[in-house]
């Protein structure tokens, strides 16, 4: 068997917003759009994970298709005619963003999310007053939300599922796309679906090995370094005062690149570049969280 030796893929021509582009067979619609210079918003897609196409923010209109299609996972076929900015596309994106914003706390999501909400004209307040806590039956006139207290059950990272949009990225990173630890899974169904350990046991009783790869892929701050969480609680979290410096992990000899996020001369979180061939954005517990020792010393003593 000759795995891994890539055979040059045949080129396929598709049309994106009236512009013909050629991409290799097997490319996704999203990749074709990128080739045409059209950026597609997405919440659940990440380069180092298998597309799960659940957020539906990235839908586009495909001529001949009854429903819109998710551009992150749909493969191109020759002659496809793709429209990325039709009224149907805009309505779907607006609604998806609006539905999420009406039920989830997006305040710690990346700045692009707020930009999309504005750009697509989302009106999350039109569903009524936000229910203050997750409940099976909110009061009449209240909009159900996933509001709940954050889970602080270990010293390394915090799970605040009131910020969770259920993009599945953490489950993928914990499972088959990187870590193969499978400490968490999607549990429950429908609006009650949530990310959970078995029987919702605290992380220290679960299979979690604290690699933090779930934290690394979370788009909304639902999973957060304890250091970031504490600074935010104290009102001291300030990205404007932060620097990001790439360096190499000080532990074993694999050579993972660490991006040290530093605020006020303290490491406040650690990430890894998605596109590096060594780590593909993933780290182990020591690389991700084992930095405390450098800021925990008294060289005189």
């Amino acid at each position: 068997m000759n795995r891994g030796v890539s055979v040059a893929a045949r080129p396929v021509t598709v049309t994106v917003d009236g512009q013909a582009v050629e991409v290799p067979e097997g490319s996704t619609v999203r990749e074709a759009c990128a080739k045409a210079g059209v950026e597609i918003p997405t919440l659940c897609f990440l380069e180092n994970l298998t597309p799960v196409n659940v957020c539906r923010v990235c839908v586009v209109e495909l001529e001949g298709s009854r429903a819109l299609v998710p551009s992150c996972s749909r493969k191109v076929e020759g002659g496809m005619v793709i429209h990325t900015d039709t009224p149907r596309v805009r309505t779907s994106r607006k609604m998806v963003l609006e539905l999420l914003a009406s039920s989830v706390d997006l305040s710690a999501a990346g700045p692009e999310v707020a930009e999309w909400l504005a750009a697509y004209g989302a009106e999350p307040e039109r569903y009524g007053r936000r229910a203050p806590a997750r409940t099976a039956r909110p009061d009449l006139g209240e909009a159900a939300t996933v509001a709940q207290p954050p889970k602080v059950d270990n010293a390394l990272y915090v799970r605040d599922y009131s910020r969770c949009i259920l993009c599945y990225k953490c489950v993928e990173a914990c499972g088959e796309d990187a870590q193969f630890t499978f400490a968490i899974a999607v549990a429950g169904r429908g609006f009650d679906a949530h990310i959970s350990t078995e029987f919702d046991v605290p992380l220290p009783d679960s299979a979690c090995v604290y690699c933090g790869n779930c934290v690394g892929v979370c788009p909304t701050g639902a999973l957060m370094f304890k250091s970031e969480f504490d600074l935010r609680q104290a009102g001291a979290w300030d990205p404007a005062r932060q620097t990001v410096t790439p360096t190499i992990c000080p532990y074993c000899g694999v050579g993972c690149t660490l991006e040290l996020h530093v605020q006020d001369n303290r490491i406040v979180k650690v990430t890894s570049p998605l596109d590096h061939t060594v780590s593909h954005g993933h780290l182990c517990v020591k690389g991700r969280f084992g930095f405390e020792f450098v800021q925990d010393r008294d060289p005189g003593g």
Partner: peptide, 29 residues
């Protein structure tokens, strides 16, 4: 701390020479 308070290089198990960089001011002394 050579991996975050100084500049330089390290080499990994796949013979990859990589840059380490100064991200923090070292403690006084």
């Amino acid at each position: 701390a050579s991996w975050c308070e100084t500049e330089g290089t390290v080499t990994s198990s796949e013979r990859r020479v990589q840059r380490v960089r100064r991200a923090l001011e070292p403690p006084p002394g």
